[in-house]
Computed example of a mutant assay.
Amino acid sequence: MSTDPQRWVAGHVASLPKSGIRDFFELVAKMKGQDVISLGVGEPDFVTPWHIREAAIFALERGKTYYTSNLGLIELRRAIATYVEQHFNVTYRPEDQILVTVGVSEALDLACRAFVNPGDKVMFHQPCYVSYHPSISLVHGQGIAVPTYARDNFALTAEALRAAWQPGAKMLMLNLPCNPTGGTCSKEQLDKIAAFCREKDLLVLTDEIYSELSFDGAHTSIASLPGMAERTIFLHGFSKAFAMTGWRIGYACGPAPLVDAMMKVHQYSMLCASIIAQEAALEALLRGWDSVLKMREQYHRRRDLVVRRFNEIGLKCHSPRGSFYAFPDVTPTGLTEKEFAVGLLEKEKVAVVPGTAFGENGTGHVRACFATSYEQLIEACNRMERFVGGARRA
C-alpha cells in the first residue's frame, strides 16, 4: 500500500495550479532585507482610518464577541442597502437580499457553489483575478475565458462575449474595474453586454470591489441597467476603497432566492462573518467616505505618474480607468513577461507580477500595483528604466 499522503487529495484539487502571484512572491520573500520595492501585492499602503479601527476597539470593549445572524448584522445590512442605492443606483432589501461575507472571495466561492452544477459553463473575461477560473473548477464547472485586449484598454465587449459563447453557458463573471488591467466598460458597452446576457439568459456575477477607485468618468454597475437586477449578484466589500484588506469583510446582494441559496452554503461553512469586522464595516459606511476620496486622489496621482513613466521608458501602457494597477507591455525589451519580472527583481530589486499569472491573455505584460508611496514609485520607475535600458543593450 502506498504511504504517499498525496493519494488522498481530491483529483480536482490536485490538478489546480498554484497562484502565479504567490509563486512569484516566494522569490520576493527570499530577498527580504534587500531594499525591494514591491509593486506586486494588490493591497493599499494606507492603514484603515482610525475612526474605523476605533469602532472595532469600542465593540470589543462592550463585549461584542458573539455570533451574528448568518446574513450579518441587520444594522450593517441596512447601511449596505443605503450605500449601494446611493452609489450604484440599485435597491436591495436588508432583510433578505443582502448577505455579509468573509471578504468578496467568500462571496465568489458561495456563488459558484450555490449556482454552478457539475458541467455548467461559466464565462469570465481575461486577464482576470487569479481566483475566478479555479473557483469554477472547484465546483466542477467549465470555464470559458473571454479575451480582452490592450487595444481596447482591456474593456470587455459584447462582440467578444458572443464569439466565445457556447451552448450550456449559465453565468458570466464580471470584474469592473478589473484586476489586473484596470480596464472597465463604458455605460454604452455595458448596455450591449446586458442585452447579450438577457438574450442568452445568463446569470451575472459582478465583482465591483474597485468601483470607488474609478478615475475617468462615473462607474456604472450592470445591476443598475434595465432587466438586470433580477439576474445579477452584486459583490462588493471594504478591502480596497476603505483600506480594510485584513478585516476580511464583504457582501453579496441580489434576488432573495439567490441570496438565500448562498446563505445556505455560508451557514454550513463560515456561519457568519466576524462581528468585530462587521462593526468596523458599519462605521466605514456611515462615516468613511471622506477617507475614500482622499485615498482615491492619491491613487489617481500615482496612476498618472507610472503610466507616464512606463510609456516614456518604452513600455506601452494604457491608462487604467480604475483600480490601482497598471499593465504595461514588456515585449519591446525582447523578454518574456516572466523573464522581465525575474530580471527586474534580481537586478533592480523591483517586484512586479508576470501577466500570465492572470491567464494566457496576460502574455507579454506585467502587473504593477501603484498602491505604494509616490516617492517609492519614482524610485521604482527609475530602477525599471535602468533595467529596460540594459535589456535592450544586451
Rank of each mutant, 00 (worst) to 15 (best):
S2C: 09
D4C: 03
P5Y: 08
R7Q: 14
W8D: 04
V9N: 10
A10M: 14
V13W: 11
A14W: 03
P17C: 09
P17Q: 08
K18V: 05
K18P: 11
D23H: 04
F25L: 12
A29L: 11
A29V: 11
I37V: 13
S38T: 03
G40Y: 04
G40Q: 02
E43F: 06
D45E: 15
T48P: 05
W50R: 14
R53K: 14
T68A: 11
L71G: 08
G72P: 00
I74H: 03
E75G: 03
I80F: 00
A81Q: 02
T82Q: 06
V84D: 07
Q86I: 10
F88Y: 05
F88K: 09
E95A: 00
I98N: 08
V102W: 13
S105V: 07
S105C: 06
D109N: 13
V122K: 06
C128W: 07
S131A: 14
H133P: 08
S135P: 04
S135V: 08
S135T: 13
L138Q: 15
H140L: 13
H140Q: 15
A150T: 06
N153I: 10
N153Q: 14
N153E: 14
A155Q: 06
R162T: 05
M173K: 14
N175V: 10
P177L: 06
P177M: 01
P177R: 05
N179A: 05
G182Q: 07
G182A: 09
G183V: 14
E188A: 15
L190S: 07
A194P: 08
F196H: 00
C197M: 01
K200T: 07
L203M: 15
D207A: 10
L213P: 04
S214A: 12
G217R: 00
S221V: 08
I222V: 12
I222N: 02
L235M: 13
A241N: 09
F242V: 01
A243E: 05
M244C: 05
R248D: 12
I249G: 02
C253H: 01
C253P: 01
P255S: 15
A256C: 11
D260L: 14
M262Q: 10
M263W: 15
M263C: 15
S269N: 12
M270D: 01
C272I: 01
Q278Y: 09
A284Q: 05
D290K: 13
S291A: 14
M295F: 09
R296T: 06
Q298D: 15
Y299L: 12
R301T: 15
R303V: 09
D304L: 06
L305V: 04
L305E: 03
R309M: 11
K316P: 11
P320K: 07
P320S: 04
R321C: 13
S323C: 12
F324K: 00
A326R: 12
V330D: 05
P332Y: 01
T333L: 04
G334E: 10
G334Q: 03
T336L: 04
T336Q: 11
K338T: 12
K338E: 14
E346A: 15
K349D: 04
K349H: 13
V350N: 01
V353D: 00
V353T: 07
G355A: 03
T356S: 04
F358S: 03
F358E: 10
G359Q: 00
E360N: 09
E360Q: 08
G362V: 02
T363D: 15
H365N: 01
A368H: 07
A371D: 03
Q376C: 12
I378T: 07
E379H: 07
E379P: 02
N382S: 15
N382F: 13
R383C: 10
F387Q: 02
G390A: 12
A391P: 01
